[in-house]
Amino acid sequence: MTKKTRPVDRRHVLRLIGAIAVYGATALQFLGGFAKRASGSVAAKASAAGSFPTASYDWTKHRWGFGVDATRCIGCLSCVTACKTENGVSMDPHHFRTWVERYVYLEGEERPRVDSQADAGDIAASSGSVDAYRFDDRDDRNVEKAFFVPKLCNHCANPPCVQVCPVGATFRTADGVVLIDQDYCIGCRYCVQACPYGSRSFNEALGVADKCTWCYHRITKGLKPACVEACPVGARIFGDLDDPQSDISQFIRVNRVNVLKPEMGTHPSVYYVGINRDVR
């Protein structure tokens, strides 16, 4: 029996050597990973001492804030187009980082009729393009009062979306912006549920949550968010709350500002002028 199995034995030995090589390599890789991890964290600490997140931008030197002057908004939706283009947001009427609502009060009615550019009646039939988004010219002849309200993420100081994220894929930065790490998000949509303002959506193509970043890639380069840049009437105000001369600081100083759903205890960083109690 042993004689017969000799070649098999040789094969056995070869296979064993092969297995040792494979497992050994894996184990070494594993250990190497630990080493890399250790050095990696050191590198991260070192860069933390300098400017973060980029070489030219230090997030401890800013505290961003956003203002919305609803009395100026003309409902042109340039902001929506700009946002979708700037941030690669799906063009369909179900995914928005920012959108515009309209509150219409008809004579004799106590509650407003609310619509947005996403309402079917306001989109040209079957266009599916953001270029066709526009507010319907309501033929309600007895409009008593009407106004537009731009909406976006409130970048709350106490964000419910961050609270519910199970993995730490969403967080608030030192300069007051709530971001999503889309390479870490598991796509559970708990944050979408938790946001009282409907500001978050789910990017089905990427399988991750999506939200307004105040164009973090722009504001860290000294630019304004795309929606602010695009607004032709100055209804959107952006700036550094720590700088008393910034647009936003002056806006808050000069106006009597409101926030949305203050009873939620979220402490929004988007300040509104020209809204009433019906705006939620």
Binding site: F30, G33, F34, K36, R37, G40, S41, A43, A44, K45, A48, F52, P53, T54, Y57, W59, A82, T85, E86, G168, A169, T170, F171, T173, A174, L179, D181, D183, Y184, T213, C215, Y216, H217, R218, T220, K221, L223, A226, E229, A230
Partner: peptide, 30 residues
């Protein structure tokens, strides 16, 4: 667990610090 946690996690809080740099490094379109 120790092996899989991303390197820059917990550098500044309960998130991947590197992701902030990644987001900030995107090029503006407008």
């Amino acid at each position: 667990k120790i092996y899989l946690v991303p390197h820059s996690f917990w550098t500044y809080g309960h998130f991947r610090a590197k992701s902030v740099t990644e987001i900030a490094s995107d090029a503006p379109v407008y």
